[in-house]
Every structure is written in structure tokens, then in C-alpha cells.
Amino acid sequence: MNNAPVRTVSDAKRDFYSHHTRPINSIYRRVVDELMVEMHLLSVNVDFAYDPIYALGIVTTFDRFMVGYEPEADKASIFNALCRSIHSTPEHYRGDAEAIKAAVSGMSLDDLKGQFEHLGEGGEGLRGTLAAIAHREKFKYSRPFGIGLYTLVEAVTPPEALKEKEAVETLFKDLASRLNISPDKLQKDVELYRSNMEKFAQAQEVMKDMLAADRKKREERKKAAEAVAEGITEPVAAAPEAGESADSPD
């Protein structure tokens, strides 16, 4: 029996910042903090079991809500630190997420729904993952799992069809019943995710304008500094000493 003390959120944060040492852009800090805490709390929950759909939800959340992050090169470091903070790796998460998404490549929505049928018979690949979830005695549902499930549906559904709210609600209610998870929790998370994505898209436009204005100011300051260094413009003369005329000879 493992008697090791349960790791705390503070432990996870300490691990995170040991792998990513640069400051996090304040606009995105909340996204990173919420993901870090959520991943940690699930990792120490005795009823939680990692699966590829959950991994897809984590990867999708990070990638979509970190769009526009600068410097761009820091995104990989941040995701690596998130995974390392729970003693996993980005390769594990991204590998499973890409594999489960590739499993629905070329499918129609009806094909995907067919994967949820006859789960009592088990199976391999996506069907095997779904069967294991449906048969788990204490499956710990999570928001990232709901987002992962939505991502699979989104991958095989025309954008116009996803705008039909009643149809989407009916679909996820049916999928939830086949997986033996709460349809209310799944529906709530899907609706919140869709709403947040819309708000984020709007915020992105504002952020683009802010970042563009900031870049323009930096470029203007750089050009001004270069011009001074090259002698194109004269620097402002220093103020004369007290008691000394501005036009006094040296």
C-alpha cells in the first residue's frame, strides 16, 4: 500500500515553475493557473483514471485558449511544465490526443455515434476507450473530458450543424447516457466551453489591437534610439548648471 503523502497544489506549482521559469503573460495567467490546478486535483483523486479523451480535452483547452500568446516559443515550455507538474509528459498527452482525434478522421457524425453503440461488447481503439469508460464502476467525470468529447464531435460535424442548439443538446444527452455519465454535467460543460470560445474570439480581436499598438510603440522607440545613435537627430541639450547662462562659453 502506498503511504506517500498526497501532493498538494503548492507542490504542483513548485514543480511547474521549476520547469518554466519565465513570467507568464498576465492576460493568459488565469488559463494556465486553472489548468494546472484542475490537472493536479484530478491526478490525486482516487476515482480518476486518465484516458485519451481527457487528454484531448486538456490539449484542446490549452491550444485554443493560448492562441496569440507571446512570445510564441514559450507555449511549448508552459505546456511541458503543466504536464511535468503532475509527473507526466507533453509527449504522453499530445500523443494520446492526436491518436484519438485521428481515430475519427474521415468519419461522419453518424459513424461517430455508431462507436457509442453496443459498448457492452468492448472493442479496440476509440470503441475500446468508450467501453472502458462506460463500464468503469466509479468513473470520475471532468470538464476536460467533456471538452475532449465535444472536440471529437466537432471534428466530424459541419460548423452549421453545431449552431443548432437543440440538436447539439439532444446529441450530448444521448452520448452521456451511453457512457453512463451525468447528461446535465456534460451539457453544462459543453455550453460553457462554447460560450467561452465565443467570448475568447471577441477578446482575441481586442488583444490583437493592443499587441499591434504595443509593437508599433516599441518599433517607434527603437527607430528613435537608432536615429539618435547615428546622429540623425540631436539629443536634447542638458540644462545649464545653476548660475550659468545657457549660452555661456565653455
Rank of each mutant, 00 (worst) to 15 (best):
E124W: 10
R29F: 05
A132D: 09
V31N: 09
A246F: 15
G148A: 03
M210S: 08
G95I: 00
I232V: 14
V67R: 07
E34S: 13
I86A: 03
A242Y: 10
V206H: 06
P144N: 03
K101D: 00
N196F: 13
R29W: 04
S26I: 13
N3W: 11
F200Y: 14
E34C: 09
Y69G: 05
V44W: 08
M36L: 15
E70K: 10
A102V: 01
H87V: 05
K140I: 11
A131C: 15
Y193C: 06
E38W: 03
R7S: 08
A246H: 06
S108E: 01
A134C: 09
K101L: 13
F145L: 06
D63L: 11
M66V: 04
A103E: 02
Y28H: 05
H92P: 00
A213Y: 02
P159K: 06
T89V: 09
E234R: 14
A102P: 00
R64I: 07
E230L: 15
L56Y: 02
S177R: 14
A155H: 02
A227D: 05
R29M: 07
G231S: 07
E137V: 13
Y150R: 09
D174A: 12
P90W: 06
A134F: 11
M107F: 13
G120Q: 04
K138F: 08
V59R: 05
V168W: 01
G128W: 14
F200S: 04
E160W: 08
E38F: 01
N45T: 10
S10I: 05
S105K: 01
E219A: 12
M197N: 05
A229C: 10
N25Q: 10
